[in-house]
């Protein structure tokens, strides 16, 4: 795969946390490229630096050293204002603990990123209802997060991440709190959307089962990329093939 096609370019990325006297090297030296349309799974043991890496890609933390270019733009040197615009236009985020706003209904929650963009209530709720329909929650559209199960809440969270049709979606352990069956449902929704809208997904997991949905697995150990494998027979691809 050539460089032109790379949507994310990470070069010599290093993150060191200073804890008083002690230095914690969370990321040692990472070099990799992620291509448009890839579903990447960052896999590794606890403390291997997965979350740190993902947060840095999402622009929530600044690297100690090295550069991250997303869509050709250096993300670590953006101002808060630029980051906000960039997030509105290109990035989506799925949280492990859903993080829905408790005072807003499912539709309102899904529509939030569009509200931040200044889109009218009518338009954004139309888009939100469509996505809720796609994640199978039409009947829950006007319910509050407190009235929904974990799996349902996470599906609302996914709808919210996709509502702006972002180019890249980040997800840190999106199925961490869910049982196996729900995990399957959620992962299928994510991968299905990604294929449909040709989106890039980067998700973090320590669950090997997740790897089945990914077409690229980045295995991290102690802040380094140990293994970087591209798979050809993911569940999603198998399904696609069946459909043909």
């Amino acid at each position: 795969m050539d460089q032109e096609n790379a949507i994310i370019q990470v070069k010599d990325l290093r993150k060191v946390y200073q804890m008083g006297e002690e230095k914690v090297v969370a990321l040692n030296r990472i070099n990799l490229e992620i291509h448009a349309g890839e579903i990447c799974c960052i896999f590794g043991t606890s403390g291997s630096g997965k979350s740190t890496f993902l947060n840095m890609l999402a622009g929530m933390e600044k690297p100690t050293y090295g550069s991250i270019r997303i869509l050709g733009r250096e993300i670590s040197s953006m101002t808060e204002q630029e980051l906000a615009v960039f997030r509105q236009n290109y990035l989506g985020y799925i949280f492990q603990s859903y993080n829905l706003l408790p005072g807003s209904t499912a539709v309102e929650n899904v529509a939030i990123p569009l509200m931040f963009k200044g889109i009218s209530k009518k338009q954004r709720e139309k888009a939100a209802r469509y996505l809720l329909h796609r994640v199978g929650l039409d009947h829950r559209a006007d319910h509050y997060p407190g009235q929904m199960s974990g799996g349902q809440q996470q599906r609302v969270g996914i709808a919210r991440a996709f509502v702006t049709r972002p180019r890249i979606i980040f997800a840190d352990e999106p199925i961490g709190n869910l049982d196996t069956k729900t995990t399957q449902e959620v992962m299928e929704v994510i991968t299905q959307f990604a294929r449909e809208f040709h989106q890039t997904i980067i998700l973090v997991s320590h669950d090997p089962e997740m790897a089945e949905y990914a077409d690229r697995i980045i295995h991290m150990v102690d802040g380094n990329v140990l293994e970087d494998t591209v798979r050809k027979d993911t569940k999603a691809i198998q399904k696609e093939k069946q459909a043909c």
Binding site: A58, M60, E80, Q81, A84, V85, F86, R87, Q88, N89, L91, Y93, F95, N99, L101, I112, P113, F116, K117, R160, T164
Partner: peptide, 16 residues
């Protein structure tokens, strides 16, 4: 804190 963090990570402007 959390709500504000979520708003920011979903692209809410600081001025808003």
């Amino acid at each position: 804190v959390r709500e504000i963090g979520v708003m920011k990570s979903l692209g809410c402007f600081l001025r808003d």
